[in-house]
């Protein structure tokens, strides 16, 4: 049994470990280890295409996470005040949204955007001489839409465990509904909101499938990696992959810590 588990973990993590290992290789081959060096990291960081793709990815991830957090938190708050069938329906929709495969979201968003652009653009172009097209904007929208449900789930979970007596106590002590939200509700759910933001950020930062459909001319880091692989895998790609993975892992761990802290707080 233990051996079996070990084999599963090896199967899961060995390829990743090997990529990370080979990224430190001194040789030119991406599939063997020849000495140790950091030269591929230096190459990657000095490659203007990589840096531009990285910057695009960070920008898209940050803005889409911001969008998802704002809209998702508001949706979670609205859902908490809801009862009965309405609520069950929305809960189900949110849960389904999380489970829909990225490729479906990608294609669906693409079709939706293209048809909207087709409708609006002639009219817009006539009025302003300017038209909508696929690009960072559509990517932010698509990522924000998808990760919003993650934020809703996290914030809803926290709201559920919030002691309603705290809200009443605040009310009782003379705080207006907005004052109560600002001084009691928000501080209590803030760790969950931040965790939601970070999860949304990593999702967008790592995403290839949705980006592939709706990014238009924009190149995010995963898209850049994908297109360079077609020209052959170099240790530079390994280095980029390792860095992306390290960054994502760090953010995910921070998100986990935040969630755990908010759980510890409600236990007290």
């Amino acid at each position: 049994m233990r051996l079996y588990a070990l084999a599963v973990y090896a199967f899961l993590y060995l390829p990743i470990g090997i990529i990370a290992l080979f990224s430190f290789s001194a040789g030119r081959s991406a599939s063997s280890m020849q000495g140790f060096s950091l030269q591929w990291y230096g190459r990657a960081l000095n490659n203007p295409f990589v840096m531009e793709a990285l910057w695009t990815s960070v920008r898209v991830a940050f803005l889409s996470a911001l969008l998802a957090t704002l809209v998702g938190t508001m949706a979670a708050l609205a859902l908490t005040g809801m009862r009965g069938r309405m609520r069950a329906t929305f809960d189900l929709l949110v849960q389904i949204a999380v489970m829909i495969p990225g490729i479906v979201i990608g294609i669906a968003t693409l079709i939706a955007l293209v048809s909207v652009f087709g409708l609006v653009n002639p009219w817009l172009e006539a009025a302003t001489g300017w038209k909508l097209s696929l690009g960072a904007g559509s990517l932010i929208g698509a990522h924000g839409l998808f990760t919003m449900s993650l934020v809703v789930l996290l914030v809803r979970g926290r709201m559920e465990t919030l002691d309603p007596a705290l809200i009443e106590a605040s009310n009782d002590l003379g705080a207006t509904p907005f004052g109560t939200f600002r001084q009691v509700t928000l501080p209590q759910i803030l760790p969950a909101i931040l965790a939601g933001f970070l999860l949304a950020f990593t999702f967008s930062f790592d995403d290839f499938i949705i980006a592939f459909f709706v990014a238009g001319a924009e190149t995010t880091l995963p898209i850049y990696v994908f297109s360079s692989i077609r020209r052959g895998v170099t240790p530079e790609i390994n280095a980029i992959g390792t860095m992306v993975m390290a960054a994502s892992l760090t953010v995910l761990i921070v998100a986990q810590l935040l969630l755990r802290r908010s759980q510890a707080q409600q236990r007290r």
């Binding site: 007596a165 009443e168 106590a169 009782d172």
Partner: peptide
């Protein structure tokens, strides 16, 4: 929040 009364809650409800 506009009433001139205050309450001590059963489980205190401290922030």
């Amino acid at each position: 929040y506009r009433r001139p009364v205050n309450m001590v809650f059963q489980h205190y409800a401290l922030f």
